[in-house]
Design a protein around this nucleic acid. Sequence first.
DNA 1: GCAGGATTCAAACGATCGTTTGAATCATAC
DNA 2: GTATGATTCAAACGATCGTTTGAATCCTGC
Lengths: 241, 241
Amino acid sequence: MGAMTEAAIDNRDTRERILDAAEAVFMACGYDGASLRQITGEAEVNLAAGHYHFGSKEALFQAVLNRRLHVLNQERLRVLDEMEAKAGGAPLKPSQILDAFFGTLLRMAIAHGDRGQTFLRLIGRTLTEPAEFIRTVLSKEFADVLERYKAALFRALPEVPKEEIVWRFHFMLGATSYAIAGTDTLRLVTDWQTGAIDDDLERLLPRLMSFLLGGLRAPLPAAASPNPQPRGNGRTRRKKP
Amino acid sequence: MGAMTEAAIDNRDTRERILDAAEAVFMACGYDGASLRQITGEAEVNLAAGHYHFGSKEALFQAVLNRRLHVLNQERLRVLDEMEAKAGGAPLKPSQILDAFFGTLLRMAIAHGDRGQTFLRLIGRTLTEPAEFIRTVLSKEFADVLERYKAALFRALPEVPKEEIVWRFHFMLGATSYAIAGTDTLRLVTDWQTGAIDDDLERLLPRLMSFLLGGLRAPLPAAASPNPQPRGNGRTRRKKP
DNA sequence: GCAGGATTCAAACGATCGTTTGAATCATAC
DNA sequence: GTATGATTCAAACGATCGTTTGAATCCTGC
């Protein structure tokens, strides 16, 4: 296969042009909906260049994802480490943890301009992609980060059952993922002017943080009883024998 | 083409079998990832039956969606009407509105057993589908309901800017959509036993409602100033936790 | 029974997909 | 300048997709 020598000066041009185009097309069409011809066409490179540089469509998607996701999650870990070191053994505040996780995401996206926004929306949509290899890539890439942040939240909220914290982390991921997935979905609930999300992106972080913090610290649901009462609609949920 | 007379007794069998299979396959693979051969194969009907009964893949997807989504949204409107009639002109409580919207969704899904759960996950994933015709279908199907519920929330929270309510509605939709989209995504954040979401589905509603209510009623973000500060990280400090 | 429309079926169509091939082009090292 | 390996290119491959076709089969009304 690729017998890479040290002569790699110009190929970064083609490689990155493919990555940029793929990022945009995958974001707009989803993994299955995007075609290599569309991607290489938009990148103005030959169709075979995609396979030459990446090997397959799956590998290309993985490369698009990891190019920015890996540095994002490294930064997330670094910020959390720094916070915990500064706290000196004391638990962090929930607002700090959420800002380290979601704030780092949004600030990195803002710092990268249009490209960062495209990647934001790609991430938001990728988290709901059904293809199995995508789920595998995501779970590997997020494993460390989620484990560390979960632990931080457990320490920050010792009175809240861990199960509940995991659920609420899940809800927060969903709210964020959905919010950054793009204006198209937002246009579904409102009739505002389109575009102009550039201005809103900076305003999104405080909005989102308030919402997430409110949800995370909400009073616990009434009955976490281990015996769930059969609600008004007492439908049997046994499997047929 | 379809010159439907009144002889439609048996075709409901084939039609519904296709709809059920399509619901499952679309849920598992997404719109682009699902193939008519897979659907008709799982339904044990001929490949051409799909086109005979529905005309096209897009129309089939739309039929799958509307079959349950339409009655869901009708029920949502009915429940809201009933609440407002009972309140007699007074604004509803936010918790009532959220329960009417999200509770109706989950309760209907629970009442329909496994099929309801499949549709729940299909809805959760469909809300993030990039295909344009899907977005068109969704926006038409949700237009009335979202308008009515937005108005109800405006009246319930007169002190909160409408813009903020719309954003938080958006966040709530995302959290819910993500939570019901399936265990696969949840397995990303936790290592729990798979399956067993059957038991959790009934517990999901109180959990979700607590989180959503907490987020909806959270203190407003600090500066909604028309002049966005150069990222002063304006941390809201209005209420004590 | 039979006529006629509704439905099913096997087979194929054209298009598009991801991928491969093999030669042409480029850049570098001797 | 020539050899060598990296990169590009046009063209095709086989597979799969959504869709169409036309005949076979089923069902119903008379």
